[in-house]
Design a binder for these strands. Structure first.
Lengths: 121, 121
DNA sequence: TCTATTAGTTCCGAAGTTCCGAACTATGGG
DNA sequence: CCCATAGTTCGGAACTTCGGAACTAATAGA
C-alpha cells in the first residue's frame, strides 16, 4: 500500500475542488466529514442517502477528495481517519467552500443542514 | 438543428455548475463571456490560452455551460450569441459564482482579471 | 436559383474516466 | 498462525470526452 498523497496548501487547484465536489456523493461525504467533527472513518460513510456505495467506489471517492486537498487522511491502526482541510482551502480560496456547501444546502440536496460557518478543522 | 435547451432558474443544479466550471477551458470561456459584456459568438473563443480548441469541442463546451444554466445562447442569423446568466445563478446560489471566479483568478490561472462584482447581464 | 462562405451542430471512433465486484494488503486479536 | 476488519488495487464493463469529417442553416453574390 503506497502512502497517501496530499497536495500542499499552495498546490490546491480550483478545478480539482470543483471536480471533486461536482459529484453529489462526494459533496455529501465531505459535508458529513465536516459535521462529524472533522474526523470520520471511511466505513462510517457506507451509504449516501438511500444509496449504498461499494467499498471500492468509496475508496476512490476519498482518494479524489484527498488529492483535491479537501481532506487529510491518516492511518490509525486498521482504519483511516479523515479530517477536513477546510482551513487550508479557506486560506487559499476564501469563500469558495462556504459558497459551494451553501449552494448544495439551499438546493435542499444531499448536503443539507451543513454548518454555514467554518467548523473547527 | 434542434432548439437550444436552457434550464429554468429554479432547475439549476449546484453539481452541474461545479461540473461545468471544473474544466479550466470552460471556466476561461465563461470568464471571457462575462468580460466581453456578456455577449460573445462561439467563434470569438477559438482558443484558450495557447491552445486551439476544435469547433466540435467548443460546441460541446458551450452546450455544457448552457445546460448547467450558466449561459443563455441565442441564434442571431448565422451566429450564436452567448449571454451570461450570472443574475439567475446569483439569485439561486448567492456568492457561488464570485467565489469560483475569484478562486480561479487568485490561482493566477485561466480566468484572471475577472470582475469581482456582478456584471450587467 | 445556384454556389460559396461562414457559423455552428451532429456523428462516430478513439481515448480516457468512473463504477464496482473480486482479489489483495495491512493491522489487530486470540 | 488464523481469522476478522478496514481499506486499496485490479480489471472489465459502462459511460464520458475529444476531435475530425460530414452535415445543417443563414446569408451574400452572380
Amino acid at each position: 500500500m503506497r502512502p497517501l498523497f496530499h497536495p500542499a496548501t499552495e498546490d490546491i487547484q480550483p478545478a480539482a475542488i470543483l471536480h471533486a465536489l461536482s459529484d453529489s456523493s462526494r459533496a455529501a461525504i465531505f459535508a458529513k466529514i465536516m459535521q462529524a467533527g472533522c474526523v470520520e472513518a471511511c466505513s462510517a460513510v457506507s451509504a449516501v442517502g438511500d444509496r449504498v456505495i461499494p467499498k471500492s467506489s468509496l475508496s476512490n471517492h476519498f482518494k479524489v477528495l484527498r488529492e483535491a486537498g479537501l481532506i487529510r487522511s491518516e492511518r490509525h491502526g486498521v482504519e483511516v481517519r479523515n479530517h477536513s482541510r477546510w482551513a487550508d482551502v479557506e486560506a487559499r480560496f476564501p469563500g469558495l467552500l462556504p459558497a459551494i456547501i451553501n449552494a448544495y444546502a439551499s438546493d435542499g440536496g444531499v448536503a443539507s443542514h451543513v454548518p454555514r460557518t467554518s467548523p473547527a478543522g
